[in-house]
Design a protein around this nucleic acid. Sequence first.
DNA 1: GCCTGGATCCAT
DNA 2: TGGATCCAGGCC
Length: 189
Amino acid sequence: MLPLSYYQNEDVLFLARDLLGKKLTTQFNNEVTAALITETEAYVGETDKASHAYGGRRTRRTEVMYRAGGVSYVYLCYGMHNMFNIVTGASGVPHAILIRGVKLVEGMEIAMRRTGKELKKDEKINGPGNVTKSMGISREHNGLSLTGEIIYLEKTRMIIPPEEIIVSARIGVSYAGNDALLPYRFRLK
DNA sequence: GCCTGGATCCAT
DNA sequence: TGGATCCAGGCC
């Protein structure tokens, strides 16, 4: 399991890239799903106009972003989609990484039941709303430690050469002005 | 209090 | 391209 120290790295862009290929597991109600991370986006603390914590905004919703790295930040978007983020960095620094895509390696049947959709072997799950739906993550899991038993990450044998990673601008953040153009989205080819 | 719009998804 | 669907955040 990835230790707390992993998440407390101050370099959120490094972590967003490094999380590609890591294995994310959820287990509750006797149901286990596990998936390799294929797409992430970094949200850089208080200085990033696309971040919920931009300008030091500190509210009930964003409070968990200010905790020390290694906890989850789950919020509702568009009234219907749960978004799963990994909080990183030191306490007081609201960095977060949104998980936008995964590839399931365990619990395909469970994921299909949760989403009501067919899923072929090795098929990627794209879109943050689809990731949480497939893996059963919801706002109940907000603020949960990622070194516990319910949601955790592990290293894998995967070695990802730089040319396998597509770096681009983030999705759906046009309100963020020039920060919308920053190359903070990372995905596997 | 009320109003606006969103780190989306899917069918059209 | 728009409808679903609802809450957080900002402003009154």
